[in-house]
Nucleic acid binder design. Structure first.
Lengths: 340, 340
DNA sequence: CATTAGCACTCGAATAGGGGGAGTGCTAAC
DNA sequence: GTTAGCACTCCCCCTATTCGAGTGCTAATG
């Protein structure tokens, strides 16, 4: 049994209708609303076929059909034509992303909000990993007694700082000396390159006052090692609550719990392919809690290298055609905005 | 009709039972479980009185009684005795807060998680306002072409940074000069004191290259002005979903929407009294969306001054006696931890 | 031979009816 | 003042019934 033209039309009609209404779709509706020029009876025959092929499901006899996971898959792969992003939408995205002079992290955060607003789904955005970025400046500063802060500035504009305990005996000259040493040895290196030998070089120069300063350097090393991690920003988590498939609190809860798990988010946004938009439907997501969800992802880049992922989460009954193109466009816009 | 001893006992019993079970409480239950030594009939009479006084309500005839908002109020004000915080709980709090060398913001965030875990309600913590803190160090650093970052370190350990556009013509000496000037004039001042005259003093010293540098200083001034704001940290928002009173998605949604509004949170956590624990029940909260919620708040301090608020949000049917003391203790612990 | 009209059938959703039971309020007795 | 007794109320839960949308099958049709 192969997919002739009409079967495709019927399948598409059912999917579109179901996406729009969330109600099982009957043969009558199809024949009437999506003028195929055939009677409900014919449509019924096609539907029976499509069900046999595993593309449709019946919640129960005498309900209409709903698309199966496979049905969505076929739709996304073969039937769907991406709805072009509205000019208006493009302008909104450009307007917000391009003209803004912001640090990357902020830009990412804004993107996630934006995406969720444009789509009414939940946006997950994986922010870039800065490990490859090069140190521009590092500064070691005294705080109140016994504490110091170390500020790290990368040349892409990312700034981090860490607090630490230090011996109270350090004086201004020590701070200056350490700052000087750190800059001298570390500047121009990426975070990834710091660890092994470089610190030893610094130790060697600390012949004088070795006992005190060595301890400080060790601490600094520790604090630099931590958390070169990627961050995930969420936008529009509450949009989930608008979906009729999440009217039972239970489901909401399990999903929200997942969304609070940083580890899960990173896993799910881990880029599987370099380019293009990837759609994962229902249990293709592996994670049990997402078996009723679809996730659309795409990567964005800086200097040609993939540095992050944009994700959009919704029910399997998702407006794929409208929304995939928005995700795609947003990655372009983001890539463009970052490259400036 | 006054509140004799027994009326109080009955009221308390009803409230305790309702808090525990979320079911309307009948006279039989009271007489049996909370051995008052009287018959259900007597209890019924008392209950009728209490209802007339507005302390109890009946969802419908022949259901049991539930506490009215006024009932809770009376309970909290007159009847309740704070359950002392368990040793174990205290140790958990101390263990986590005290031993940690962290910057304030991080500490606050941990507190909110902690509070929500200990109580199973939703924690809202208002983080300190740093406007009064004094500048320890400021650094103006070049980034890629045309961009610079300014790093501000306060003496309480708080660090902020801002990105900005600058003329490309600036050279290393300019950066050093500006950093020098900023430190010279601003060090030792609080953020609040910066604005008016100080910047002018800096301008005066910028005789050379005035046109370029003036523009930079203006930008710096702008970026310092923004966002000396307080932040709110949430913990355990999902705990709301465990409460039977929030089994309808609608309610969840309106409440979650409120919790996403920074403005709302700040308003609600705005300290109304200096010391002690404040309990706001139901519509005492004014905000429409919170009419089924209670909010327990208390302030914490640094150097004797109130610098933030801890809030705990739950249904009106809240375990006031267990939970108020935890909130209170946490403010102590936090105050203590901050003062170190 | 694909298409279609017709029709019986199925099954869930919505509606209605009917105990059952928890709890009340009242009254009268203690 | 307290309590036992009792009629009454009203929700909850269960079942039965209806209703209707939608199907699958069959036979008729072009």
């Amino acid at each position: 049994m192969n997919m002739d033209e009409r079967k495709q039309q019927v399948l598409q009609a059912i999917i579109l209708d179901y996406i729009a209404t969330a109600d099982p779709v009957g043969s009558r509706t199809i024949a009437r609303k999506y003028n195929l020029g055939v009677s409900p009876a014919t449509v019924r025959n096609e539907m029976a076929d499509l069900e046999e092929m595993g593309l449709l499901e019946q919640p129960h006899t005498s309900a209409g059909r709903i698309p199966s996971q496979l049905g969505y898959r076929y739709y996304v792969d073969c039937l769907m034509q991406k709805e072009p992003v509205k000019k208006e939408t493009k302008e909104i995205i450009r307007g917000i992303l391009i003209n803004r002079i912001k640090e990357t992290e902020n830009l990412i955060q804004i993107s996630s909000k934006l995406l969720s607003q444009l789509t009414n789904y939940t946006a997950l955005v994986l922010a870039p990993f800065f490990g490859k970025n090069v140190l521009r400046h590092i500064q070691f500063l005294p705080m109140e007694q016994g504490k110091a802060v170390i500020v790290i500035v990368l040349d892409n504009g990312h700034v981090e700082h860490r607090m630490m305990d230090v011996p109270e005996s350090l004086n201004a000259a020590d701070y200056a000396a350490i700052t000087g040493l750190l800059n001298e040895h570390l500047k121009g290196l990426s975070l990834e390159q710091w660890r092994p030998s470089v610190m030893k070089a610094i130790f060697r120069e600390l012949k004088y006052q070795k006992d005190v300063l060595q301890q400080v350097i060790e601490q600094i090393e520790d604090s630099l090692a931590v958390e070169q991690e990627q961050k995930v920003f969420l936008g529009g988590t509450l949009n989930i609550l608008n979906q009729p498939e999440f009217k039972q609190i239970e489901k909401v809860k399990t999903l929200f719990e997942l969304l609070e798990e940083e580890k899960f988010l990173k896993e799910v946004l881990n880029p599987e392919q370099e380019t293009g938009v990837l759609v994962k439907i229902g249990s293709e997501n592996l994670h049990e809690g997402m078996k009723d969800c679809s996730l659309i992802t795409a990567t964005y880049r800086l200097d040609g290298k993939v540095i992050g992922t944009i994700g959009l989460l919704g029910p399997t009954r998702m407006e794929y055609s409208r929304v995939t193109s928005i995700v795609e466009f947003l990655t372009y816009a983001l890539t463009e905005s970052l490259s400036k």
